Simulated assay, not measured.
Amino acid sequence: MEIKELTRAEEQIMQELWKLNKAFVKEIIEEMDEPKPAYNTVSTIIRILETKGFVGHESFGKSHRYFPKISKDDYKEFATGKLLLGYFDNSANNMLSFFLEEKKLNLKDADELLKLLAEAKKKAK
């Protein structure tokens, strides 16, 4: 299945659904930050997410309990790839340099990344 990009509102709801794993609209709203969106707004967005293939549901009479059909890790891979390709010429080096220059990544984080890279290099051998 092809993953599509989420709008900001859709992503907010998916973040809550990924945390909850299964939830009714009311439960999703309870987890959201203030100001909480209207029930109808969340319900509409959930139905859009279902049409896009992100969400499925189980029926309980007239109520529906929703669950993610696409994992957070799968969407993270899609979004990161889109970011890398669209803004950094598909270069992890360009992206890392940007985060360092913009101070979104400190030296401690960079050291941890270097350790991860060294471990990955050992595993690849």
Rank of each mutant, 00 (worst) to 15 (best):
K52C: 11
K52H: 14
K52P: 11
G53D: 04
G53S: 07
G53H: 07
G53V: 04
F54K: 01
F54R: 01
F54D: 00
F54Y: 13
F54V: 00
V55I: 12
V55K: 09
V55A: 13
G56I: 07
G56S: 12
H57L: 06
H57F: 14
H57Q: 11
E58Y: 04
E58F: 05
E58R: 04
S59T: 02
F60I: 09
G61C: 06
G61H: 06
K62Y: 04
K62A: 02
K62D: 03
K62F: 04
S63G: 12
S63Q: 15
S63D: 15
H64V: 03
H64R: 15
H64L: 14
H64A: 10
R65L: 08
R65H: 09
Y66N: 11
Y66H: 15
F67C: 11
F67P: 13
P68D: 13
P68T: 13
K69Y: 00
K69C: 00
K69A: 00
I70Q: 02
I70M: 02
I70H: 01
I70V: 11
I70G: 02
S71C: 03
K72P: 03
K72L: 05
K72M: 08
K72D: 07
K72W: 06
D73Q: 12
D73P: 02
D73M: 10
D73R: 08
D74N: 14
Y75W: 12
Y75C: 10
Y75G: 08
Y75V: 09
K76Q: 11
E77A: 15
E77P: 08
E77G: 08
F78H: 07
F78R: 00
F78Q: 00
A79H: 05
A79F: 06
A79G: 01
T80D: 00
T80G: 02
T80E: 00
T80P: 01
G81V: 00
G81H: 02
K82H: 12
K82D: 09
K82T: 11
L83T: 07
L83K: 06
L84Y: 07
L84W: 04
L84F: 06
L84G: 04
L85A: 15
L85K: 15
L85N: 15
L85Y: 14
G86R: 05
G86T: 03
G86A: 03
Y87F: 10
Y87T: 05
Y87M: 07
Y87E: 09
Y87V: 03
F88Q: 08
F88E: 07
D89M: 12
D89Q: 10
D89F: 13
D89Y: 09
D89V: 06
D89H: 11
N90F: 09
N90C: 06
N90Y: 10
S91L: 13
S91D: 15
S91H: 11
S91M: 13
S91E: 13
S91K: 12
N93E: 15
N93S: 12
N93F: 10
N93M: 10
N94W: 03
N94L: 07
N94K: 11
N94P: 01
N94F: 05
N94C: 03
M95P: 08
M95R: 07
M95I: 06
M95T: 05
L96D: 03
S97P: 08
S97R: 14
S97Y: 13
S97L: 15
F98M: 05
F98L: 02
F98T: 07
F98N: 06
F98E: 04
F99M: 15
F99S: 09
F99Q: 10
L100D: 05
L100A: 10
